[in-house]
Every structure is written in C-alpha cells, then in structure tokens.
Amino acid sequence: MKNKKGWEEMDMDCLVNIFQRLGLEDLTIGVPFVCKSWHQASLDPLCWRVLDLEPLDFMPWSKFTKRFMMHYSVHHFSFTGFMRLVAMRSHGSAIELRFPLLFGASMHDLFYASSECPGLKKVVMPNLLLEDEVHIPELVAKWKELELLEIQSKPASFLEMVAQISLNCENFVGLRMLGSIKKDDALAIVRLLPKVKYLCFDKSYLPKEQLLMLMDGCKELERFSVKDCIGFEADEEVMKKGLGIKFFECEGSKLFDDSGYDTDECDPLYVHVI
C-alpha cells in the first residue's frame, strides 16, 4: 500500500487555492499555526483578495480578539492594527473590502486602505462621523477600479461623491445606500452614472417622482431594490415601469409612515427606525 501524503505535503498551489476561500479569522489565527507549509501558503496574496471584516468581533473581550492576542503574543489589540495587517498581506491584490458597519473604523483607516488596496472593486463603507463625510469623495476617487459601493447612510457629500465616481471609476455599476433620496440625488445618478446596473435604496425615503426618474433615466438598470421605503406606493404606473427591469423589488414600500408623516425634508435617521 502506497503511503498517502498528508495535508502538510500538499502542493503549494493547491493549498493556496483552498485557503483563498477562507475568511480572515481562519487566515490569521487558524491555518498559519498548523504547520510551516500551511503558514507559507496562507501568506500568498491570492488568499487576501477578499478582506471581509464584517463578521469579526473586534470587542476586547471577544473570543476572536483573545485568540489573536494569544497567537501573536501581543498585549494590545486594535482594529486599525488588524486592518493594516490584512491589507499589507494582500500586497495590493485585494479586490473587495468590507468594513464592519458599527464598530467605528476611522477615516485614517479608510485612507490607509485606499493606499494599500488601490485595485478594490467592491467596498462596503463603515459608519462615519459627520465631519468625516466630507472626505468620502476624495477617498472614492482613489479607487479607479471601483464597481460596487455600499454605504450605510447617504453622506452630506453625496453629490460630490457621485461626481468623483463619474470622473474616476469608469467601471462603476452598483450603489447600495440608505437615506433620503432627493431630486438632485436622483438627477446626479441618472446624469453621472449612466452605466449603473444595480441600485438598492431599501428602507429609504424615496418619493415617487424620484423613483420614476431613476427608473426612466437609468437605461442599463438590471436590479432595483426599494423595499420597505417611504414615499411611494407600488401602484399600476410603478409596477408597469418595473416590468422593464430584470429584478425590481418594492415589497413593503408605502406612501406614508404609520403616523401619516411624509415630507421631502425627511431626516434619514427617521427612516432608520421605521
């Protein structure tokens, strides 16, 4: 009977092919500590093309944080330090970066990521302080390959952000955002993002006028999700126009909220709690 090879003796390319399917927890505190060959394979930049920070618990008392500190023999753990570690290991090859929405990454973290990961195609932004939102257009302009952007709430700099995407991100096709979608916002999307194929404004304030403007003006739109919105009803006109979009989702949307309140000045924070 021939001796079978152990996992540690697998071809390096095979190991890399397997490890690039793993999440960041496994890549940082799992496979590198199994054996030398696994550690070497885990450092291949191909394993770090998707930097998904969302599922990790970065609180000081979390199991993940404690294991990381133990494995790397460090006495202090920081989100910034961890993010820089995984960004550096990508060696500029990362194409997707997902920040945790609620943990509170800083604008410094975002600018560092834009420098270390210039080829990002998909970015999920964290919640930012109001004073930091002014920097979003400058930040987005650095990602020349950007195709998809998810942002938790519409920033005050939204119009300038769209302008910078138009000028710098020729492959941009998708936006996911929550907020109050005003006429100027819809016009900017129609005029400056003509190639957009995916829009998601679930749980936003979206009047019918802006909804129809987007449906008529975004000629290449393939998926449009406006579920649980306030500002329009799925009447015959809306549904008829929706037939021209491959995937149109508007379940749960209504003209007024439960108190009958409806205004163009609707605060996005108000929409959050509906």
Results as ranks from 00 to 15, higher is better:
Trp48Thr: 01
Asp258Asn: 02
Lys121His: 00
His91Trp: 13
Met69Asp: 01
Pro137Gly: 07
Ser180Met: 10
Asp262Cys: 10
Pro268Val: 06
Pro118Gly: 13
Leu129Ser: 14
Phe103Pro: 06
Asp57Ala: 00
Leu120Ser: 03
Leu192Val: 03
Ala113Thr: 08
Lys197Ala: 12
Pro60Phe: 12
Leu51Asp: 00
Ala94Cys: 10
Lys182Met: 06
Glu160Phe: 12
Ile95Thr: 15
Lys195Leu: 13
Gly104Gln: 08
Glu237Ile: 08
Met215Gln: 05
Asp235Cys: 06
Met125Ile: 07
Cys47Tyr: 04
Thr28Met: 09
Pro100Ser: 14
Pro45Gly: 00
Phe19Arg: 07
Val134Cys: 04
Arg89Gln: 09
Val34Thr: 13
Ile136Gly: 00
Leu178Phe: 10
Trp61Glu: 14
Val162Gly: 03
His91Ile: 11
Thr263His: 10
Leu120Val: 11
Leu167Phe: 15
Leu24Thr: 09
Thr65His: 14
Phe247Ala: 08
Leu51Trp: 10
Glu237Arg: 02
Ser225Asp: 08
Leu192Gly: 04
Leu46Pro: 04
Val190Gly: 07
Ile29Phe: 08
Ala105Trp: 01
Met161His: 10
Ile136Pro: 04
Ser90Met: 00
Leu51Ala: 07
Asn171Tyr: 12
Leu269Phe: 09
Gly6Asn: 15
Glu249Thr: 01
Arg98Trp: 08
His135Tyr: 15
Asp216Tyr: 11
Pro32Leu: 02
Gln40His: 00
Lys63Ala: 14
Leu24Ile: 01
Val31Ile: 02
Lys4Cys: 14
Leu56Thr: 03
Leu43Arg: 10
Leu175Arg: 08
Arg223Met: 05
Glu265Leu: 03
Arg176Gly: 14
Gly252Ile: 09
Lys63Thr: 15
Asp264Val: 07
Gln40Lys: 11
Met59Leu: 14
Leu159Trp: 13
Pro126Glu: 09
Ser106Met: 12
Ser62Lys: 09
Asp258Cys: 02
His71Val: 12
Met59Cys: 10
Pro32Thr: 00
Ile95Asn: 00
Cys200Trp: 09
Phe19Ala: 10
Leu159Ser: 03
Ser73Arg: 15
Asp185Leu: 01
Ala188Asn: 15
Met1Asn: 12
Met107Ser: 15
Cys169Met: 05
Thr65Asn: 02
Asn3Thr: 15
Met177Gln: 11
Ser115Asp: 15
Asp109His: 13
Phe172Leu: 05
Phe33Glu: 08
Arg21Ala: 03
Ser78Ile: 09
Val140Cys: 04
Leu211Lys: 14
Gln210His: 12
Lys208Glu: 12
Leu178Cys: 07
Lys144Pro: 00
Phe201Lys: 15
Glu233Val: 05
Leu149Ile: 00
Gly23Glu: 05
Val16Arg: 03
Leu130Trp: 08
Phe103Ile: 03
Pro126Gln: 06
Leu149Trp: 02
Leu43His: 04
Asp235Arg: 01
Glu147Met: 07
Gln210Ser: 05
Cys14Asn: 01
Glu138Pro: 02
Leu269Lys: 11
Leu22Ala: 06
Trp143Ser: 07
Val74Ser: 06
Lys154Phe: 10
Lys183Ser: 06
Cys218Arg: 01
Thr263Phe: 02
Lys144His: 15
Cys47Asp: 04
Asp132Gln: 06
Ser153Gln: 13
Cys117Leu: 02
Arg89Trp: 14
Cys200Pro: 01
Lys246Asp: 14
Thr80Val: 02
Lys66His: 13
Lys5Trp: 08
Ile165Gly: 04
Pro118His: 01
Val238Ile: 09
Glu150Met: 10
Asp257Tyr: 03
